[in-house]
Structure formats: structure tokens, C-alpha cells
Nucleic acid binder design. Structure first.
Length: 382
DNA sequence: TACACGTGGAG
DNA sequence: TCTCCAAGTGT
């Protein structure tokens, strides 16, 4: 289908360029499959510069597959705090336990074994097998699809699965004998450093002379990609519940459910104003907002009253945009019959407790999504 | 197939 | 400020 000479040229020039230009990255200093694995999971939808410090901390804390398998999940989440897509961390640890139990702690290299690990999809399986084991396997990510769609002028929507499988077949015909590891990394390295999404640096590209998109003047139009939908707005009233008595100087946080958005992470109590986005915070009078929040807290079993406005915060996820209005709330220390269950020592000394009173120091022990770190930081600094 | 799932950097 | 992302996977 594609000219064999152009393929040979592409692979040869690309490897030659990679040998001279590859970056010195922490996970490239060893061929330890565990390091490669961790780095690949962290790099999913995440920039290299962001990943580097997380990778180093993670490996230091969990140096081996077994160490990761044996760690408490909360510690793994805490180590992932701020990186996003937290199910990656939970899946990674689950998979580490799989490897410990099924493969004696030794990372497998077989296609079905690697692909069978939780959190390892077609891309990551190919990346681990090629990079760590030098097995000819396709590691087709966004970089690779961009590079190939340009060089070979492939005008297929890269959001479609069919396009990726097509690219995987193409990659298999490109891997030079014995160079699977370098070739996978070279392809992605070119996409990251030269064949970039915007303003590709064609003049420094090692394969520019036979790039079909460049020849047609289409390098800026490729790859073809359907646009993502903008995030839907959600309006949330958020509570900083200030403790009194034995909880003086502390505030109340709760743990999110084990599934879904920010699963297992800690947060400030908050309530959605309107699920359908029909109302927003601006249209909600201050008095009404505070009453609403107070009511929601009580329904949750938290005897607290919204007392004063603290700050606004906005947080954008891939699919949701949170508009938050934060209020200081006063907790009622009422040892009555209707006192909140968590007020009993048994309820929140327990490891599974849904709620905790914390101060600035205690933040080190719980994993918070970024938006709450910002709010808590502002509060404890005030 | 389409959507859920985070975050911060770049232009 | 806004838009587009960046080494994808699970359901």
C-alpha cells in the first residue's frame, strides 16, 4: 500500500534521529519493566514535565511491583494526588496485585498476559512489550497517529478505533529488526518534539523529504480529529464546616464514593444547586444559597449552619465545569438525640469513616482533588 | 460507539 | 479568557 522504500527510509532516519536526540527521562535510565509500566500509566493523557516528579516519588515510595501490591490503597492515591484520572492509580495497584499473585511478582511479556492487566489497554500493552521487552508490538498513541497520518497522508479520523488498528498494522511493517524498543520511543519522541500538533517543526524533521502531508501542504490539517464536546456547567455550594470544642481549629472533610468521579478522594462537603444547569449561582441570592447549603448539610446528618461567604472557585474537568461558591459554616456541638452519628467516637475513629476533622497538617494524610487543595490552602492561609 | 474520567501548559 | 490539548482505558 505505502511505498516500501519510503517506509525503509522513514524507519532508518527516525531511529538515527532518535539515537542523537532522545531526551534523558527517568524511566529511560533502566529497562525495568515495572518502571516502564508505571511511566506509561502516568503518561496517559498527561505531559512528560508533569509526570517526572510524580514518577520519581512513586518509584521511591513503591520501588517494586510487590511493594506497590502490598501498600494501602490510600497511600497510592496520596502519591497520585494532583495527577488526575485517579482510577489509573487504583487500577495500577490492582494490576500489581494481579502480577504478584499470578506471575510471582514478575512482569509478564506475553500479549494476552500484559493486555489482561487492569488499566492496560492496546496502547500500553504495546508500549510495555516493545519498550521493556524489545518485542515487535505496536504502541500507537496520539503522537504516533499524528506522525503517521502526516507522513503517510492518512486522512482518517483518529478518534475511530478502526483508524488505530489500521495504524497498528502499519507500525508492525515499520519496526526494524531488533529495534522494537527504540522504534516505539522514537516514534513518540518525534511526535512530542518535532511533529507537534501545532506549528510542526518540519525544517528539523529527519523524514521531511518524504513526508506526504508536507508535500501536499497539509501538515497543519492532519490528523483528522472530531472535536470534543465542551464541559457542561455545574453549580455547587461548598461548605467549610468549622469545628468547635474538641474540634476547634479543624474543619470537616468527607470521602467520595469508591466509584465514579474522583473515586475514593477526600473533599469538602458540597451540594449541587441544579443538576440540569438551569439555575446558576449568580441568580441565587446569598440568603437562599446559605439556607440551601444548611439544609443540605443537615440532610446529610451534619448539624451545621452556613454563616458567611468565603470564596468562589472554578474547576474544569474533561466533561464538567464546576462553579463553586464556598461558605464558612458553624458546627453545632449539640449532644442531643439527633446528634450526628459521626459525633460518636466509634464512627470516626474507624478506618472506614466517611468523615474526618482535619487541620492544615492533616492534609498530608488524605488525598484531595486539586480544587479542594486550592480552597483548603486559601482557608488555612487566611 | 460514545461518554466518563483530571489537570496544567501553550498559543 | 478561551480552546485545545497530552504517551488512553473502562464501561
Amino acid at each position: 500500500m505505502y511505498n516500501t522504500e519510503h517506509k525503509r527510509y522513514f524507519s532508518h532516519e527516525l531511529l538515527d534521529w532518535y539515537d542523537r536526540n532522545k531526551r534523558d527521562l527517568p524511566w529511560r535510565r533502566h529497562r525495568d519493566p515495572y518502571y516502564i509500566w508505571v511511566s506509561e500509566i502516568m503518561l496517559q493523557q498527561t505531559r512528560v514535565d508533569t509526570v517526572i516528579p510524580y514518577f520519581q516519588r512513586f518509584i521511591e515510595r513503591f520501588p517494586t511491583i510487590e511493594a506497590l501490591a502490598d501498600a494501602p490503597e490510600d497511600e497510592v492515591l496520596k502519591c497520585w494526588e494532583g495527577l488526575g484520572y485517579y482510577s489509573r492509580a487504583r487500577n495500577l495497584q490492582q494490576a500489581a496485585r494481579q502480577v504478584k499473585e499470578q506471575y510471582g511478582g514478575m512482569m509478564p511479556s506475553g500479549k494476552d498476559e500484559v493486555a489482561g492487566l487492569k488499566g492496560v489497554g492496546p496502547y500500553t500493552a504495546g508500549a510495555i512489550r516493545s519498550i521493556a521487552f524489545n518485542i515487535p508490538a505496536p504502541a500507537v498513541d496520539g503522537n504516533v497517529m499524528r506522525v503517521l497520518s502526516r507522513y503517510f497522508l492518512i486522512e482518517e479520523d483518529i478518534m475511530k478505533v478502526r483508524t488505530r488498528t489500521h495504524m497498528e498494522e502499519l507500525v508492525m511493517t515499520l519496526i526494524p529488526e531488533g529495534r522494537a524498543s527504540d522504534f516505539s520511543q522514537a516514534l513518540m519522541e518525534l511526535g512530542a518534539l518535532v511533529c507537534t500538533p501545532k506549528s510542526p517543526k518540519c525544517l528539523t524533521c529527519p523524514v521531511m523529504h518524504h513526508c506526504a502531508a508536507r508535500f501536499e501542504g497539509k501538515e497543519e490539517q492532519l490528523p483528522i480529529k472530531t472535536k470534543a464536546k465542551p464541559p457542561r456547567p455545574e453549580y455547587r455550594l461548598t461548605a467549610i464546616v468549622e469545628g468547635s470544642g474538641q474540634h476547634q481549629g479543624k474543619i470537616l472533610v468527607r470521602r467520595r464514593p469508591a466509584t465514579g468521579l474522583l473515586a475514593g478522594m477526600w473533599e469538602l462537603p458540597h451540594v449541587t444547586v441544579s443538576a440540569d444547569g438551569s439555575a446558576n449561582l449568580a441568580s441565587l441570592p446569598e440568603e437562599a444559597a446559605m439556607e440551601r447549603l444548611t439544609g443540605a448539610l443537615r440532610e446529610e446528618g451534619i448539624p451545621a449552619t452556613a454563616a458567611s461567604y468565603f470564596m468562589d472557585a472554578e474547576h474544569v474537568f474533561s466533561h464538567i465545569r464546576w462553579h463553586m461558591r464556598v461558605y464558612r459554616c458553624q458546627y453545632q456541638e449539640l449532644p442531643s438525640a439527633e446528634a450526628w452519628v459521626a459525633e460518636t467516637a466509634a464512627a470516626y475513629e474507624a478506618p472506614e469513616a466517611q468523615y474526618q476533622w482535619i487541620d492544615a497538617q492533616d492534609m498530608e494524610r488524605y488525598a484531595f482533588p486539586n480544587v479542594f487543595i486550592r480552597i483548603l490552602g486559601a482557608y488555612f492561609a487566611s
